[in-house]
Amino acid sequence: MDEHEATVLRSLIGAVSGLLNDRAAEAPEDELTQLTGLRPGNPVAPDDPQLLRLLPDFHRAEPGSPDAKRADLNAALRSLHEPEIIESKLAAGRVVLETCPESGGKIVLNSDQADAWLAALTDVRLALGTLLDIDDETPDHLDPDDPRAPHLDVYHWLTWMQDSLLQALNP
């Protein structure tokens, strides 16, 4: 990885980690938290589309079916599991930051580190893809005048990195 690529990747990991840290800081604290040290997650789904993509609802109702219990179930599951999910995503990002040399260079990963890279790359791609509004109909290349064009190139680069890592793990 060259220095520019390392800088871009480290910056993207930092941005996603910042979103996740901000979300974790919004979690309510109560007396039980103070007594046990266990932090509940925020029971309310994130407003930010990137965070909502990174922390989706646990339960989705079938289209067209009224499911009044869904909101209560999602709130309970978020309170229970969101802190662990956020910590897992942050830990994966830390592994990338620890193993990606700031000035670029060869990256050698053990199996656990490679898994963390895959998870962190997925999170960055989800966040960037949401920001760029990427869907099945997004062309591979945008008009150079489109302000999203350079970012789409980064998205494709992240996809290539993820694919390359998967191929290296499964020879």
Rank of each mutant, 00 (worst) to 15 (best):
A68R: 14
A120E: 09
S79D: 11
D163L: 15
A68H: 14
F58N: 05
V154K: 11
H4Y: 10
A6I: 01
A149L: 13
D47W: 02
L142H: 03
N170M: 08
D123A: 02
E98I: 01
R78P: 03
F58S: 14
D135V: 07
L118Y: 03
A27K: 04
G104Y: 04
K106S: 12
L35I: 05
A25V: 02
K69A: 13
S65A: 14
L90I: 15
P49N: 05
H141M: 00
P66N: 01
A6R: 04
A75P: 06
P63R: 14
Q167G: 00
T7H: 09
A15F: 08
L118N: 12
N21K: 14
I13A: 10
E31F: 09
K89F: 11
R78G: 00
L152D: 03
H156R: 15
G41R: 01
R148D: 13
L131A: 12
H59T: 10
H4L: 12
P150E: 14
L19N: 00
E29F: 02
E3F: 04
L121M: 07
Q34D: 13
L142K: 09
I13C: 07
G104E: 08
N170K: 09
Q162A: 15
N21D: 14
G41F: 01
E26T: 15
A92H: 06
L109R: 03
R70D: 11
V124R: 04
D22C: 03
A92E: 04
L54N: 03
G18N: 15
A127P: 07
L118C: 08
D135H: 13
T33P: 08
V95E: 10
H4W: 08
R39L: 14
W117R: 05
A15W: 08
T159F: 13
P139E: 05
A116H: 04
V16I: 15
L142E: 08
N74A: 02
A45H: 07
G105N: 01
P40N: 11
P49C: 11
Q50S: 04
L126V: 01
K89P: 02
H141A: 15
S11D: 15
D146I: 02
D140C: 07
P28I: 00
F58Y: 15
D112E: 13
D163M: 06
